[in-house]
Amino acid sequence: MIENIYRPFKVIISEIKQLSENVRLFRLKLDREIDYLPAQFFMLGVWGAGEVPISVASTSGRDPYIEFGIRKVGKVTGALHELKAGEAVWMRGPFGNGFDLKTAHGRDIIFVAGGIGILPLRALINHILMERHFFGRLFLIYGSKRPSEMLFSDEIPLWKEAGIDVILTVDIKDGLWRGYTGVVTEHIDRIKTDFREACSYICGPEVMIENTVKELSLRGMPDHLINISLERRMKCGIGKCGQCYHGIEYICINGPVYTYEDIKKRLALYGA
């Protein structure tokens, strides 16, 4: 009998936190041991609506629960938002590759997040804070459209306390906003580090990733130290359904994390 990797297991929602108008953080009770890495994803499902790939926002080995931040955009995420604490989510995973942390050992790290790209980076940041002594100085540039869409305003002070240099920026500011404005790439030069020795982790919309990679590369950051995470439509999570194709790759099994070196070598090569 072959293990049925398509069969989901049931988990109960213990708590739901509203992070912004249409983003909620779902905390799930785990009745089994699951090891996962930052940027890995699970398929979360609701009967009748289907499944979506969601990357983990919590940190394995630190948190006794598992958390997912979900923005309401489509059918399945809409159904997930209908759920209340105590109700069940059907899940499979973890799938995909997590961020490679070994190459970051001994280096300064720049995290760049756009919009809900902060969710997988939150998992990463908390993971790195657990092993703080392996790494150099830490920087976070986090951009979102409006101040009201900025997530984890309660956790960002904790990160600052832990010694992370945090730069917050919004596209459209309101009366109360005291931080920066503009896209994330405009603030890269506020980071005082040797870009040729540092490494970076970037999550967000594809255009933002593209621009950030370009800017970091221009400042001399080596290709293999620029880490990104891509997003695609996925149905199986295990490299069968084909929906997450990107050139030769299936993002679900070969990604979702790539270095800029991988992108140049494996994806951009064929341009299709």
């Binding site: 009967w47 009748g48 609506a49 289907g50 199986c236 069968k240 359904c241 084909g242 929906q243």
Partner: peptide, 25 residues
Amino acid sequence: CTCFNIVDYNFSNQSGKRCRIWDTC
């Protein structure tokens, strides 16, 4: 060609079936 889509068909609120169907890139 082996690409597929996965869809749920509900019989009722809590019951139904999950199917895979041929799809094309």
